[in-house]
């Protein structure tokens, strides 16, 4: 379980998170929605310790991660996989080296096992046999799937997805959504998915939270969110800019 407790974060003088609190249950597929720039990705980066909050705490399976040593944080990170918005593949490495980098550096498996596991993960994301290709040769959808294979390679307990369908055509977005569902079913991993794509949110999520002005203003199931009376939630899920009361920032 991940408990995000009263997180505050500012960059220069701009306050992005202002007391965000949220609990993510083990085994859930938890969607975090919210408008662009509301701090969704910033919140996600706090969970994996890429950003440190100005105030507040994050507890992962009973272990508080704010203020811990680098080695302790790295031990936590080995249990968390992350798919970045643009996949963040290492340009200078092949697909195989990208996927295997984590396990190679941590010496988790022997070389033949690594090669076997890379092939397995690529098969899992529907891209068998592309090990020798370079990231520059891949399409947007392929890059995301390779990024996902890399995140899966360390057999994580949690996977964080930062806008997994952004920038993809609807068919490729559907492929990614189905992949997230399949990974969820086959591995039982806890997924935290930041998105503003409501089609994706309804398809893969079994819990949802909405972030607005740096705070979590709603948490519930997809059915709860549909029937929410909160005007901010309703405006976001309907995608109607004309609906009151939200003003354009």
């Amino acid at each position: 379980m991940i408990a995000i407790q009263n997180i505050h974060k500012s960059f220069d003088r701009k306050s992005v998170l202002q007391g965000a609190s949220l609990t993510i249950e083990t085994g859930a597929s938890h969607i975090i929605i919210g408008r662009s720039g509301c701090g969704k990705s910033v919140l996600l980066k706090h969970i994996i310790g890429l950003l440190q909050p100005d105030q507040g705490q994050i507890v992962i399976d009973g272990k508080a991660i704010v203020g811990i040593s680098k080695n302790e944080l790295y031990a936590i990170r080995r249990r968390i996989g992350m798919l970045f918005q643009n996949a963040a593949l290492f340009d200078s490495l092949t697909v195989e080296a990208n996927i295997a980098l984590g396990v190679r550096e941590h010496r988790l498996y022997s070389e033949p096992d690594i090669r076997k596991k890379v092939a397995e993960k690529l098969e899992m994301v529907g891209l068998p046999g592309i090990e020798p290709m370079s990231p520059a040769e891949l399409s947007g959808g392929m890059r995301k799937r390779v990024g996902l294979a890399r995140a899966l390679m360390m057999e994580p307990d949690y996977i964080l997805y930062d806008e997994p369908t952004t920038g993809l055509d609807p068919i490729m977005a559907d492929v990614i959504n189905r992949l997230i569902l399949r990974i969820q079913e086959t591995t039982g991993v806890t997924s935290i998915i930041v998105t503003h794509d409501m089609v994706s949110a309804y398809m893969v999520g079994n819990a949802m939270s909405m972030l607005h002005d740096g705070r979590v203003i709603f948490t519930g199931t997809p059915d709860d969110i549909r029937s929410s009376q909160n005007p901010l939630v309703q405006q976001f899920i309907s995608g109607d800019s004309a609906v009151e009361p939200v003003s354009e920032k």
């Binding site: 680098k70 990170r77 968390i80 550096e105 941590h106």
Partner: peptide
Amino acid sequence: TEQIDALESLAIS
């Protein structure tokens, strides 16, 4: 391009 963050996320300094 977040590749440094990706390294960190893999627990690689």
